[in-house]
Design a protein around this nucleic acid. Structure first.
Lengths: 230, 230
DNA sequence: GACAAAATCAAACAGTTGTTTTAAACATAC
DNA sequence: GTATGTTTAAAACAACTGTTTGATTTTGTC
């Protein structure tokens, strides 16, 4: 049911005038909920634990957000915004880069986010959960979190291999590149068991990024040269 | 608590002598549990729904398997066994293949399992859930389901690029190949939204398998030739 | 047929869940 | 100060969870 929360949402007349203490507990709840949702999943995460970690009362979630699902959506939105900003930052300085530079940059930026960042694996685990059990929020995850990168890589790939944007080879090549990246982000549990010696330190990730770039560009350049004089 | 079930387990003296009706409901429960676990996840899956789909009583799970987790482990074991048999079958006929043939074969076999098979996406969704929320059963999933393929590809890759089995380039190249494959198995929700026109029909998967092979071999052969006369 | 073990069932149990309620504490404007 | 609206707190609610119980039916054996 709609209740108290709607009052707050419907009256952000002056930004940061009335906010008072609600904003505080609201932030604390989102932070705590991010942790709990990430490590337990949506269903297994309990409102009671979220509130305990946030130092708030059990009723705080329902008072502030309405219900559990709205809180989850809000956490996902927050997570997406953070990831989006990082992506936008790297996008700003690669619009002037060569296609090859774009590809190398995207791979590196994407991999590096695995070791740095404030909360290392939050966003990843949240998205992973969305993958295995999609909620209505899935659409936003893809549209805001993945499509920008996907489209940027697609343009660069098309430029290198000299084929149209929507040619099958273009699309499949992008999938191949994205797949290599996602392997290191999503398959860490497997990786840890298959290659225990592979630590995802910054300089190791650096070498991995280089490898993925070399691996991919070998094909792209080969096809590109074939097109240019074939 | 251990109870009735242990009686059955501890007395398989004559195989298929006493089994009677228990085996039947046991199979029905595993089948139903596979569906429910796959689509809802371990936590959200309820014993009541599993039993309803299996046409059994609520107490059937606890009577037959002891508790919910034991049922889950059994389902995972079943799923692994099925996948393992498929892998073993393809392994039998590729031991005599060239390294390149091995790689092409593994890619194709792995991708084709996406469209054929009795229950198309069971195993995948189960493993996906293990990825995002690993249980103690995770170890077996990796060891029985992934390591055999991983090792086979590694040997073939090492042969082509002419580097030792545990060279970093060898391992990273295997990761690149496996990553491309896993992308199509694990990222279907994303894929469905990013490329709605990409249907995973048998002949489409055939072209995808070819692409992954070409994409990967471009790099492997390049490195291999470099080694042979450099 | 009778008899014992195995299997099924309906009902209940104990615990946890998201959510609601009611009242108290707090802040703010007059 | 009082009055008003907002935020917290403790307790209770209703629904659902995995699990257990004890009776009842089914099954296999003599």
């Amino acid at each position: 049911m709609a209740h108290h929360a709607s009052i707050r949402i419907s009256t952000p007349v002056r930004p940061s005038a009335k906010p008072k203490a609600l904003e505080l507990t609201r932030d604390k709840l989102i932070e705590a909920a991010g942790q709990v949702f990430a490590e337990r999943g949506y269903r297994a995460a309990t409102i009671r634990e979220i509130c305990r970690r946030a130092g708030a009362n059990v009723a705080a979630v329902n008072y502030t957000f309405g219900d559990k699902m709205s809180l989850y959506t809000e956490v996902l939105r927050h997570s997406m915004r953070a990831a989006g900003q990082a992506a936008a930052m790297s996008a700003a300085l690669d619009s002037s880069l060569s296609p090859e530079g774009t590809i190398r940059g995207v791979i590196r930026a994407r991999l590096m986010s695995l070791c740095q960042g404030p909360r290392p694996d939050w966003h990843i685990r949240l998205v992973m959960h969305e993958f295995s059990h999609p909620t209505p929020a899935m659409g936003r995850v893809v549209d805001e979190g993945m499509r920008p990168i996907y489209d940027r890589v697609r343009k660069a790939v098309a430029a290198i291999i000299g084929l149209p944007l929507d040619h099958e080879t273009t699309r499949l090549s992008v999938n191949s590149i994205v797949g290599q990246i996602l392997f290191y982000t999503f398959s860490q549990p497997v990786l840890a068991r298959l290659q225990p010696e592979l630590k995802l330190t910054p300089d190791q990730l650096d070498r991995i990024a280089d490898h993925i770039a070399e691996f991919s560009l070998a094909y792209l350049k080969k096809v590109g040269h074939g097109k240019s004089h074939g």
